[in-house]
Amino acid sequence: MSAPDSADRSLGQLVATAADEMSSLMHDEIALAKAQLRHDVKRGAVSGGAGAVAAAVLIFSLPMLSFALAYGIQSWSGWHISVCFLLSFAASVLVAGLLGLIAMVFAKKAKNGKGPQKTVASAKETAAVLGHVKPHPRAEIPDLTRFPALNERGGETAPAVARSSS
């Protein structure tokens, strides 16, 4: 048995098909929003990772770098060791600041991600369009009593056929 033509389908079948299509569309919109959220979460993870690396570099390298740099500056310039330690500290703070700026750039990119907002706007637009849809007008069925030539039984009226909406 073949599938019925869209002209032969009842109003209920058409409504059911439209509801299924709308449900499918909404599921696809939700899947798209999830994919875009995953992308934004990855950006946030990179930002958090860069911030953690900046903190780790500052914490673990300060003692070693400070001593090495201070003694290196002192042997190169002949300045007092306290001035050399201050310069070493300033260099460590500069490196940490640079890594912190990298973390801020990635955090702004993650915050400004417009992924789910675009999907929500698209879903609202679809719902607004479907909310203003009016049903297609049905063609009038001719009254066979007024046209006996069209009546198959030659003057008798054909029994009325009720159409189901389900």
Rank of each mutant, 00 (worst) to 15 (best):
T126I: 11
T126P: 02
T126E: 09
T126V: 11
A127V: 08
A127R: 08
A127G: 02
A127P: 01
A127T: 06
A128I: 03
A128K: 12
A128G: 05
A128E: 09
V129W: 06
V129R: 15
V129Y: 10
L130N: 13
L130I: 10
G131P: 00
G131N: 07
G131R: 05
G131V: 02
H132S: 14
H132F: 11
H132T: 14
H132Q: 15
V133S: 09
V133F: 09
V133E: 13
V133D: 06
K134Q: 13
K134A: 09
K134T: 10
P135C: 01
P135R: 05
P135Q: 05
P135L: 05
P135S: 06
P135H: 04
P135I: 04
H136I: 11
H136R: 13
H136E: 15
H136N: 14
H136L: 12
H136S: 11
H136D: 12
H136K: 14
P137N: 03
P137L: 05
P137F: 03
R138V: 11
R138L: 15
R138F: 15
A139G: 13
A139I: 08
A139F: 08
A139M: 09
A139T: 10
A139H: 10
A139D: 12
E140G: 11
E140W: 08
E140Q: 15
I141Q: 11
I141A: 14
I141S: 10
I141G: 07
I141P: 03
I141D: 13
I141M: 11
I141W: 09
I141L: 10
I141N: 12
P142D: 07
P142Q: 06
P142T: 07
P142R: 07
D143F: 01
D143Y: 01
L144A: 03
L144I: 07
L144H: 05
L144Q: 06
L144N: 07
T145D: 14
R146E: 13
R146K: 15
R146I: 14
R146H: 09
R146A: 15
F147L: 09
F147I: 08
F147G: 01
F147P: 00
F147K: 04
P148D: 00
P148F: 02
P148W: 01
P148S: 02
P148R: 00
P148A: 02
P148M: 01
A149Q: 10
A149N: 07
A149Y: 04
A149F: 07
A149D: 10
A149S: 12
L150H: 03
L150T: 02
L150K: 05
N151R: 03
N151P: 00
N151M: 02
N151H: 00
N151A: 14
E152R: 12
E152V: 08
E152T: 08
R153I: 07
R153C: 06
R153Q: 12
R153P: 03
G154Y: 00
G154D: 00
G154R: 00
G154A: 02
G154W: 00
G154H: 02
G155M: 00
G155K: 00
G155V: 00
G155N: 01
G155D: 01
G155L: 01
E156N: 08
E156D: 14
E156Y: 07
T157L: 08
T157R: 11
T157I: 09
T157K: 13
T157H: 09
T157F: 08
T157S: 14
